[in-house]
Design a protein around this nucleic acid. Structure first.
Lengths: 294, 294
DNA sequence: GCTGATCTCTGACTAAGGTCAGAGGAATGG
DNA sequence: CCATTCCTCTGACCTTAGTCAGAGATCAGC
């Protein structure tokens, strides 16, 4: 009987052997593998990308990226031009040949995946695809990092903006920030509260805040998870983390308001031990109020 | 809704990012990664390994392995001495320091696996482990290659030896090759028949043979799968491959004998369409006879 | 005891992947 | 407009990983 640790190690060995080896040899296409990866990344959205961003995403040295771009330019696959907004920065853009080559890389990856699928009978194939989706979900979940964030940072602002945009879309009456109860940055900044950001490979994918109120009371605010990161248990972890911090701050009860259209959130609150209570504020967008003892 | 191909590609990307990156940086331990891998492989069984075998298992150039061994020797982790049986060949043996270092590598791998497991709650963890085991099984299954093999090759002989050893262990009365109906190599060599070998990363993990008889009849013989490769659908593929070849040789019916203690084999035959028939030979070890139309 | 094959080792070489220290141009804050 | 910071590029350099062509020792068959 293999232990869990052994299963994970065997899995790692098997997968890196099969996926790694094939990827490297099939996708190189007569150029260094790094160049192909860079080409693929440039074309990821809109066939153009800032050099700075490429460096950050691929975690490569500035000199190295520059050199790779030169070699892609020499192949006629990309053009590197100055950024219109900032003449110091440069932007890499795929040429027609570059777009074509990138499609070819995509096709090769599809073929590799297809060759795996074709090698299995139907039942096994379905089971493998399900299992792969589950592993992907779990590994993404593991890669999510939750840390406190200054309430006025640009990334926090971006999360809160997306949070409100989503509420505006989902509420029947829309979401009017001016009508909502105000939430001052200080209220979710230590020692009066805290804002947490969830990040996946550095990208913000969720936020949640708590403010510590008089009477050993905590109030959960601004709980949001990006669509790309749903189903990973991020909201549950954010909530548990906030509750832990509230407990550490001396709070003995936690409350929150929400809206009946947010079914997933409500299910989460219930399963985390929250029970419906009387309205404790007059937030115009709220239709449900919950609380639990910490 | 993501297509199967997309699921596989996302899976590959996610896994190689997480497993590959961590493996490489954590396991290098201040020496080239190749050296660590070689060290690990030397200690795989009995803390010693033939240089020749290492080369074959890792698929590396002779000169390269020699150089890696020199660097491990310089670190005091291995000793390379001449093979007692063949003075040309050499054997690498872990020193005390080498065994210690290898345990450390093992510990680091365990820690990485453990850190993944610890990051998940119990339910998710169990689902991930199950899914990883399933993916591992499927990928191993994909990696199994089935090819015809000369009946007198050393690898074929080794498979047949293990096949008989297993029968001897499982039959109540043991297995006596001398008492069994003889099977001449020519009978399972084209054009009179064929022997198939299943290999996983080059290692033989199974065999099966068919002999073509008069009257458009085929007889399946020597069906065996190594314990390490069971549950991968190897036997089913071997059987289907043999039947295909029998059909191509003009056979219209396939028969085989087996023993009641071989439950998995019997289940396979039944699910492949075989039905029990009257005894068609006097093989002393057989208790059941099956046949099907092709 | 000779011949050819086998096994390992060494030296020479290559490509990939990456690091580091400036140089030079452009932006920003005062 | 000046100093500082930011961004990219270039040249020099390094390690890793790997290939290839012998050389030298040994073995197996005759």
């Amino acid at each position: 009987m293999a232990s869990d640790v052994e299963v994970v190690r065997t899995f790692n060995r098997t997968v890196t052997e099969m996926a790694g080896a094939l990827d490297e040899h099939h996708l190189a296409r007569g150029r260094p593998l790094g160049a192909s990866r860079l080409l693929w990344e440039i074309g990821l959205e809109g066939d153009r990308a800032e050099v700075r961003g490429l460096r950050a995403r691929l975690g490569l040295d500035a000199g190295y990226v520059s050199r790779l771009l030169r070699s892609l330019e020499a192949e006629g696959l990309v053009e590197v031009v100055a950024d219109a907004a900032d003449q110091r920065a440069r932007v890499a853009r795929l040429t027609a040949a570059g777009r074509c080559e990138r499609r070819e890389l995509d096709r090769l990856s599809d073929d590799l995946a297809g060759s795996w699928l074709d090698a299995l009978d139907e039942g096994r194939r379905a089971r493998m695809v399900d299992a792969m989706a589950e592993v992907t979900r779990c590994l993404r979940s593991i890669a999510v990092e939750i840390t406190p964030e200054p309430a006025d940072s640009t990334e926090a602002a971006e999360c809160l903006r997306r949070y409100m945009a989503e509420l505006d879309e989902r509420f029947d009456i829309g979401f009017d920030p001016a009508a909502a109860l105000p939430l001052e940055p200080e209220a979710i900044t230590p020692p009066k509260g805290v804002l947490l950001l969830a990040r996946l490979h550095g990208e913000p994918v969720g936020c949640a805040a708590v403010k510590f109120l008089p009477g050993h009371l905590a109030e959960i605010k601004r709980m949001w998870v990006a669509p790309s990161a749903r189903g990973l248990g991020v909201a549950r972890r954010l909530l548990a983390d906030l509750e832990e911090r509230a407990r550490a701050a001396g709070c003995r009860r936690s409350q929150l308001d929400t809206n009946g259209t947010l079914a997933e959130a409500i299910a989460l609150y219930r399963s985390a031990g929250y029970q419906e209570v009387e309205a404790f504020n007059d937030e115009p967008h709220a239709t449900l109020w919950f609380a639990r003892d910490l």
